[in-house]
């Protein structure tokens, strides 16, 4: 899967599951970029069809609704949707 790594300040393992066509996903990705934190993101709508089920199941493990954006911090803290305050707080970036 085509996971893109964005270098930045280490605030833990930050993984963003997003859709390339979604305005709220774009805002979330922009926020992470502006905060300057290190993160990885995967555009789930762009994964290879052979890996589609695997990618969606991975998202559903964190967020059973399988909705986007789904942000996972340190494999434990999950933030669904563009929740700016919650994201800032979780990344200690108020």
């Amino acid at each position: 899967m085509d996971v893109v790594h964005v270098p930045g300040e280490d605030r833990g393992r930050v993984v963003l599951y997003a859709l390339s066509t979604c305005g709220w996903c774009a805002k979330t990705k922009q926020l992470l970029t502006d905060l300057g934190v290190e993160f990885s993101y995967l555009y789930v709508d762009r994964v290879d069809p052979a890996e589609f089920d695997q990618a969606l199941e991975e998202v559903e493990r964190w967020n059973p609704r399988g909705s986007f954006p789904t942000l996972v911090i340190n494999d434990e803290h999950v933030i669904v949707g563009f929740q700016e305050d919650a994201i800032r707080e979780a990344l200690h970036a108020k």
Partner: peptide
């Protein structure tokens, strides 16, 4: 500007799937 982005997403999905699936949801095709 935001709305144009979503309309663009609809067109991407129309090219991809043949119908304008919601740009903020994962379509299966």
């Amino acid at each position: 500007e935001f709305t144009r982005g979503l309309v663009c997403g609809l067109l991407v999905n129309r090219d991809r799937y043949g119908y304008i699936a919601c740009p903020c949801r994962l379509a299966t095709g």
